[in-house]
């Protein structure tokens, strides 16, 4: 459903993506792992029209979407949940959720959809009049995921959903992602907690220096001794840098 073909791109004169290529099949979870600065977040920015792509092609549902703007990508059915806390701090939970549907032409449908999404995340209904900044980190993460579901996306790009969350909250987020996958949503995820992420994923891919080094079933990557040594080791602590 999503295909990157030989993408080159970066910021100013720095090249981050050096011919990145991979495919993501429909209704699956794919986890991207790799060392610091491998370009994982940059891949998301490239797909979502936030990066200067020098060459290569991005296909979504067979359509060329290379260099499409974020708004166009949203209209294609793609949403992006970036790393870190990304709520609008002073707006209420309700209005944050509403922002997820800001591009929709028919706002009455957005209302109905907000109710559906809140059914999936009952916490949001309880706190709907609170300012988003007053939510805990885990609640904010849920709000972000809920917001990304507002337009019923086909593909969700989600960057480090577990950052700053306690282990049981991480599990909650992963369960949510699996549930979405079972409903037919495609998920491409970057996750520092690689072992746990691969365990719930269908596919895994290893990105190094902006190139796809390995791409296989998640279970095979989990059992691959080389991957294990590099990325899944107990003491290995990996985070994406400023990129």
């Amino acid at each position: 459903m999503l295909e990157l073909k030989d993408i080159y791109g970066g910021y100013d004169k720095i090249t981050i993506l050096n011919g990145t290529s991979f495919k993501v099949p429909r209704a699956s979870i794919t986890t991207m792992i790799g060392p610091n600065g491998a370009g994982k977040s940059t891949v998301f920015r490239a797909i979502f029209g936030l990066l200067n792509i020098r060459s290569g092609q991005i296909l979504f549902d067979g359509q060329d979407v290379t260099r499409h703007t974020p708004k166009q990508m949203i209209n294609h059915g793609v949403t992006y949940v970036p790393q870190g806390r990304n709520v609008i701090p002073q707006l209420s939970v309700w209005h944050n959720l509403e922002m997820g549907g800001v591009t929709a032409r028919d706002q009455s449908k957005v209302r109905a959809r907000m109710e559906t999404v809140m059914d999936q995340f009952p916490m949001l209904r309880e706190y709907k009049n609170r300012k988003a900044i007053e939510l805990s980190g885990g609640q904010q993460q849920q709000l972000e995921i809920a917001r990304s579901l507002l337009l019923d996306p086909k593909l969700i790009l989600i960057d480090e959903p577990s950052i700053g969350l306690s282990p049981n909250l991480v599990q909650d987020v992963f369960v949510t992602l699996q549930r979405l996958r079972d409903q037919g949503v495609t998920i491409l995820m970057v996750e520092q907690n690689a072992k746990a992420a691969l365990a719930i994923s269908d596919y895994g891919l290893v990105l190094e220096l902006g190139q796809t080094q390995m791409h296989d079933d998640a279970s095979k990557l989990l059992n691959d001794p080389k991957v294990g040594q590099l990325f899944l080791g107990g003491h290995f602590h990996e985070e994406e840098g400023a990129a």
């Binding site: 979502f48 936030l50 974020p70 708004k71 970036p82 701090p89 707006l91 922002m99 591009t103």
Partner: peptide, 15 residues
């Protein structure tokens, strides 16, 4: 407000 408070996110949401 979204643009003022978190421009990057506003952009990602299609504002």
């Amino acid at each position: 407000q979204a643009t003022a408070q978190n421009r990057g996110v506003a952009e990602i949401l299609g504002v």
